[in-house]
């Protein structure tokens, strides 16, 4: 049974006004437990609208969102449950830090869940550890942290609710390469350690290729493709047509192929090097 499903989900913006438009349309997708799904698509393709449906922030006009076997709009209780089962971390989450200390900020979610003080304490420490925040930072004001630390603190606040599904909307936007790699590493190890399902909204085809198990491509409010990294990235022409691009190493392999040297395909530098070296040259 999938952990998360959208069945025929449609959402309208500005309903009932002259500017009414379909933000997403007839979305059908099943996400299996434990997957790390990269969600890609250009601006306005409906990525953010879709993920906001997954934890009940937006209500579909038509169709159902099923989380852990339950329709989240069946009754009030189901909706509330969905908000804890599916943790959503917005773009630039560091702008949402507000408490006096990092500790209080991370504990805000679990507190709202009505957990006991002891359990909250345990969760805050564990979440801080997952995101690589040192213990001594917990008593600092969130505003004294560096940009990368702030972002990790904000993500820890969502992780502390121990959601079954963690959704991150462009968690690496605006970071420098090192900050970006730390966040990607963190997401990967969080998933491996907890077995949780993670949805990663991203503009970077390179980042998605590095860590995702599945890729969901959105275009004009609909699901264009959904499959493994290999299945999706091999459609480079279709991806380009909808304003996306394949990683630079994949282009290298495409050029080789058009010159009569078919080495298969590679979407990360590691894989590309491995393939080329296996073809020879290494012994020279």
């Amino acid at each position: 049974m999938p952990i998360l499903s959208a069945n025929g989900v449609t959402h309208l913006y500005n309903k009932g006004t002259p500017s009414q438009s379909k933000a997403i349309y007839d979305i059908n997708v099943d996400i299996e437990e434990g997957e790390l799904v990269g969600i890609i698509g250009h601006t306005g393709s409906g990525k953010s609208t879709l993920v906001q449906h997954f934890n009940g922030l937006l209500k579909p006009e038509n169709g159902q969102i099923i989380v852990d076997g339950k329709d989240i709009w069946k009754d009030k209780k189901s909706t509330r449950e969905a908000r804890f089962k599916v943790g959503l971390c917005f773009q630039y989450p560091e702008y949402q830090l507000f408490e006096e200390t990092v500790y209080k900020d991370i504990s805000f979610g679990p507190k709202n869940m009505g957990l006991k003080e002891e359990e909250i304490h345990k969760r805050v420490l564990l979440a801080a550890e997952y995101v690589g925040l040192k213990k001594e930072l917990l008593e600092k004001s969130p505003f004294d942290l560096s940009g990368g630390e702030k972002r990790r603190a904000a993500i820890a606040g969502v992780i502390a609710m121990q959601p079954k599904v963690l959704i991150l909307d462009e968690p690496t936007a605006g970071l420098d390469p090192k900050g970006r790699d730390r966040i990607l590493e963190m997401i990967k190890s969080y998933r491996e350690r907890t077995g949780s399902t993670v949805l990663l909204v991203s503009h970077s085809m390179e980042d998605v290729a590095k860590i995702a198990t599945k890729v969901l491509v959105m275009n004009k409010g609909q699901v264009e493709m959904y499959g493994t990294v290999d299945e999706v990235y091999s459609h480079s022409v279709e991806l380009r047509n909808i304003g996306l691009n394949v990683p630079q190493v994949s282009k290298v392999f495409e050029i080789l192929k058009s010159n009569g040297m078919n080495l298969g395909s590679a979407y990360t530098v590691e894989k590309a090097a491995e393939i080329i070296l296996s073809k020879g040259g290494a012994s020279v």
């Binding site: 390469p177 990683p247 290298v252 080329i276 070296l277 290494a282």
Partner: peptide
């Protein structure tokens, strides 16, 4: 320095490190 290089540059670098004459 915590920076990237273009993927094509990095690929060539890795290949060269492994003895590939590039």
């Amino acid at each position: 320095l915590g920076l990237d290089v273009p993927q094509a540059t990095e690929l060539a670098y890795r290949l060269k490190q492994a003895g590939f004459p590039i």
